[in-house]
């Protein structure tokens, strides 16, 4: 149970980091960290199917698509 508490706190910290970072690439990487920790939490909640989907999509493909879009627009939030 202590693992779940630690992971939840780490996930919320990463979410707040995604809110506060001015550099959009850093914010997107924090968002990927949220997805990665969420997939571990899905596994601990006895949902291995959902954990696989979240790890492959949330932490992998979503981040890549965000980074491509940031490269085509502007990197810093003004």
């Amino acid at each position: 149970m202590i693992y779940i508490a630690i992971l939840t706190v780490a996930m919320l910290i990463a979410g707040l980091a995604a809110y506060f970072f001015r550099d959009l690439i850093a914010a997107v990487v924090a968002c990927a960290a949220v997805s990665l920790i969420a997939s571990v939490l899905f596994y601990l909640l006895q949902a291995p199917d959902v954990a696989m989907a979240e790890a492959a999509i949330g932490a992998g493909l979503t981040t890549a698509i965000f980074v491509i879009a940031i490269r085509k627009t502007g990197r810093y939030e003004k």
């Binding site: 199917d49 954990a51 989907a53 492959a56 999509i57 493909l61």
Partner: peptide, 24 residues
């Protein structure tokens, strides 16, 4: 992953996203 979707964790949605990550 998607061929064994009815036996083990996994399935079409997960296998499809793994295939897309190969192209990525």
């Amino acid at each position: 992953i998607f061929l064994h979707g009815h036996l083990t964790p996994g399935g079409g949605f997960q296998g499809g996203s793994v295939i897309a990550s190969a192209f990525l």
